[in-house]
Lab assay of single mutants.
Amino acid sequence: TLFEALYDYEARTEDDLSFHKGEKFQILNSSEGDWWEVRSLTTGETGYIPSPYLAPV
């Protein structure tokens, strides 16, 4: 399942991933609570992002 960003987000740590509203992601790991490890389909980068900022496509 692909997810889309509902809002912009600016990374706060080196493990976070900055992204823009509308960017699409592949979920790599969603078992860590509200922070999911994802791969951006736009940039190819991986990192953690807050799951409340995402919605299924």
Rank of each mutant, 00 (worst) to 15 (best):
I27D: 00
K24V: 14
S31F: 09
A5R: 00
L6S: 04
A55L: 07
R12V: 13
W36R: 01
F25V: 03
L54A: 04
A5Y: 01
K24M: 13
V57L: 10
S31T: 12
N29G: 10
N29K: 08
S40N: 14
R39G: 01
E23H: 07
F19I: 08
G22I: 00
P56R: 05
L2C: 09
E32Y: 13
G22E: 02
S31I: 09
E45K: 15
L2I: 15
K24P: 03
Q26S: 08
D15Y: 15
D8S: 08
L28V: 08
T42F: 09
K21C: 08
E32L: 14
D8I: 01
Q26N: 06
G22D: 03
V38H: 00
R39F: 07
Y53Q: 06
G22C: 05
F25Y: 01
T1G: 12
F25D: 00
T1R: 10
K24C: 08
Y48P: 01
L41Q: 06
L2E: 07
L17D: 00
T43A: 01
T46V: 14
L6G: 03
P56S: 07
E4N: 02
E37I: 13
P52T: 15
W35I: 13
I49S: 02
P56G: 06
L2M: 10
T1H: 11
L2Q: 06
E14T: 13
G44R: 02
I49C: 07
H20Y: 13
K21I: 08
L2Y: 10
R39E: 05
G33E: 11
T13I: 07
G44W: 06
D34F: 15
S30G: 09
A11Q: 06
Y53C: 15
S40E: 01
E45D: 09
S30W: 12
T13K: 14
P52S: 15
W36E: 01
F19N: 00
Y9G: 03
S30M: 14
D16C: 14
T13H: 14
G47V: 03
A11G: 12
T1S: 11
L6D: 03
Q26Y: 13
S18P: 05
L17P: 04
F3V: 07
R39K: 12
F3G: 03
N29V: 07
G44F: 07
Y53L: 14
L41D: 02
T42A: 12
L41E: 07
Y7M: 12
P56I: 08
